[in-house]
């Protein structure tokens, strides 16, 4: 494996009184595309939110580029080069498309330019003056991904980017994620849609009950199909 960019060890997280993560361990190498798989409610989204520092309480260790981030507020974490695309997409209704796109501040040099992003998502260019939430679901997803490409962050956390989208759009988003990987982005992807995940990822971590229980490399997916089906209940 290449240099380790993100290393999560013994991560616990809570929302109020409920203890969601019970010691999560995994790591992501620079330039890798890794997925977190698992059924609903096993703690995949909470894992991403913990990495971003937006859960109520977390303990354990999350090292990004060798630096510990547990204990830091989320804006400090983001400024080290992490960017987050939430499951609910988080498009702002009081901002138009272009304002949404320009909202996340540049934290490091080397991000994509606005023109490059519009080239990747031509729909957004057409609708740049529209209110953000007037876009279709697919366009909103593209906007949510597009706006974190400008910032120079090298680790992208994508939470279920295909959820609720038509197959054509899912296909398109798959292409885009592959292209982002080719451009050198490191990506941690949370997915329910295993077929989509299998197409793009280098490795898969499987979560159950707030823990990572298994790791399957892309090359080993075929031998482990039965086991994966049992994990994911498909």
């Amino acid at each position: 494996m290449a240099e380790i960019l993100l290393k999560v060890a013994g991560l616990h997280a809570w929302y109020g009184e409920s203890h969601i993560l019970h010691g999560v361990d995994f790591q992501v190498g620079r330039g890798e595309l890794v997925t977190l798989l698992g059924r609903n409610g096993v703690g995949k989204t909470t894992t991403l939110r913990s990495i971003m520092g937006i859960v109520e309480k977390r303990t354990g260790s999350i090292a990004f580029a060798g630096r510990e981030t547990v204990g830091q507020p989320s804006d400090t974490i983001a400024r080290q080069g992490l960017a987050y695309c939430p499951e609910e997409r988080g498009i702002f209704s009081s901002l138009n498309v272009e304002e949404n796109l320009l909202l996340p501040p540049v934290v490091k040099p080397g991000g994509m330019s606005v023109d490059e992003i519009y080239r990747l998502f031509p729909n957004l260019l057409e609708r740049r003056r529209s209110q953000g939430t007037k876009l279709s679901g697919g366009e909103q997803q593209m906007l949510a991904i597009g706006r974190i490409l400008r910032t120079g962050a090298n680790l992208l956390l994508l939470d279920e980017p295909t959820e609720g989208l038509a197959p054509v759009i899912v296909q398109r988003i798959g292409d885009i994620i592959s292209e982002l990987k080719d451009r050198g982005f490191t990506i941690l992807l949370v997915e329910q849609n295993f077929h989509f995940a299998a197409r793009v990822a280098d490795r898969h971590y499987v979560m159950e009950d707030g823990k990572v229980v298994d790791m399957i490399a892309a090359a080993e997916v075929e031998q482990n199909r039965a086991k994966l089906q049992a994990y994911l209940g498909v």
Binding site: M52, G53, I54, P73, S74, D75, I77, A78, R79, A83, Y84, P86, G90, F92, S93, S94, L95, L103, P104, P105, V107, I148, T151
Partner: peptide
């Protein structure tokens, strides 16, 4: 405007 709507997410983008 964005922080009025969703302060948590705006902060997670690196804005204080």
């Amino acid at each position: 405007r964005a922080a009025t709507e969703n302060p948590t997410l705006v902060r997670a983008f690196g804005i204080n």
